[in-house]
Design a protein around this nucleic acid. Structure first.
Lengths: 258, 258
DNA sequence: CTGTCATTGCGTTGTTATAACATAATGCAA
DNA sequence: TTGCATTATGTTATAACAACGCAATGACAG
């Protein structure tokens, strides 16, 4: 028996003992690569359906801890920037039809009375991670785990499209009073890269010069003498976030809006 | 046996059959009266502890529906403006010590294995209601249900202070891109009353004239010819919300910040 | 009836933030 | 060397905002 199949059977048998019933969580993991906003998705076993990485809450942990644990398994990363944003609880959102179907494809029948087949209320989290640091790893009910361009994502399993939309909406709102980027970009980045990140999240173009003025006005950036070379055209400066002031801004909040 | 005691025993016996396990909800109900922001609280039976109105989620309903149901029982109101804002899930936040203690005071022993004694994850909602319309009604584990001035609220049961603080924080943020007042004020109100509401929520003074310009600029108010009379000093105009444009503003969002 | 006074309604001004546009500098490529 | 796309920095017009002035009002005291 494959390791994955073993792990799934294990979940089905012991789920009820280790996890809280009725409660699940789903994570919208945002990354940024090649000037594109990416989302980490899992492909359901032997099916064409994709879905968000998710999991369950152990009997002794908080939902935040659970989300961290789940994402550690999917990305290899610790201490991910995580934010819960909504609870999805439509009674018809899931009897886990999709998950049960995927289990069946693995050769495991899930009965109606199984812990896995119950109604789940899902707590939505969004995560902002550094693309290059992530090692996408599938879970017990999935074949594949990869990044998707936000624009290319079509129909997802269950209500995951709804969850994704709500996550993006929330992220856009948070942009108005929170600095964003520290967890999404590499240590050193250029102004055009940071701007592109904002433009991608907001889904609209911004003026280069006004963007620069505004973002530097927050005082959370420090500029290096060094410039990016190798690419064509005038070399842009490298920037990094001033972690001290960044964290301060996270707590105290910014003012402006976009 | 009292009706309340009967209802509590009923809950303890049938809770597991009708409600989802591990999931509860708590509501921070805001009202506005005599230029004060009020919060609806319940007094735990025969104890000095007060707490937020809360409840559980029936097996076939969404958490939003559950919150509406609970608040209908506590306030007599339907169609309350409700907003979920956070999930509280610290594993130590509650083994329902306070509720069990209150049940004991009623003369009911709750055993460790009872449905009531399990760990609960609570979904926080805030509600904005019209003070005068509310008929505060205690529940099975409480003695009393009344409005409290926000400033006078001291130590609450469990983590309810945390929940209250988070609700207020969220409300303040929402003020930046949502019109507020339609559900908190009577049909007709004056500009100073509306301003006082904003000032109370924000916890700071605003300039009369700038406030008027900004709020009328949203185009969600209509002014009556009529003025408030009887009170001393110059009579202020009455205003009402233009429900059409108000709802539109709720959906599309406002821009400014306070 | 009359003057007082706190409050309301409407208006003005100076400052700051924002949007839109201009110009010079840079570094690779032809 | 020149062309060109891109970056860095600067300027200007407009809109938003904060701070303040002043006349009108209406209950109240005398």
């Amino acid at each position: 028996m494959s390791e994955q199949k073993q792990s799934l059977m294990n979940l089905l048998e012991t789920g009820a003992t280790y996890y809280l019933s009725h409660i699940s969580l789903d994570c919208v993991v945002f990354g940024f690569h090649e000037n594109q906003l990416k989302v980490l998705l899992l492909k359901m076993k032997d099916r064409d359906k994709w879905g968000l990485p998710g999991g369950f809450v152990r009997k002794e942990e908080s939902v935040e801890l659970a989300a961290n644990r789940v994402l550690k398994e999917r990305t290899g990363l610790d201490n991910i920037f995580l934010q819960q944003f909504h609870v999805f609880s439509d009674p018809d959102r899931s009897n886990n039809k999709d998950l049960i179907e995927s289990a069946r494809k693995t050769g495991i029948e899930v009965t109606e009375d199984n812990w896995f087949a119950q109604r789940f209320i899902s707590i939505g989290f969004y995560a902002l991670v550094e693309f290059s640091q992530v090692k996408p790893t599938a879970d017990a009910i999935s074949d594949d785990c990869t990044w998707w361009d936000l624009q290319e994502i079509k129909s997802l399993m269950l209500d995951h499209n709804l969850i994704l939309d709500k996550a993006l909406e929330t992220l856009r709102l948070h942009l108005n009073y929170q600095p964003i980027g520290y967890t999404l970009l590499p240590d050193k980045f250029t102004m055009p890269e940071l701007q592109k990140l904002y433009e991608t999240i907001l889904g609209k173009k911004l003026d280069r010069r006004n963007f620069q003025r505004k973002i530097t006005g927050y005082g959370i950036l420090k500029r290096w003498e060094e410039r990016r070379s190798g690419v064509a055209h005038k070399a842009p400066y490298f920037y990094s976030f001033d972690t001290e002031k960044y964290k301060q801004a996270l707590q105290e909040g910014l003012d402006g809006g976009w």
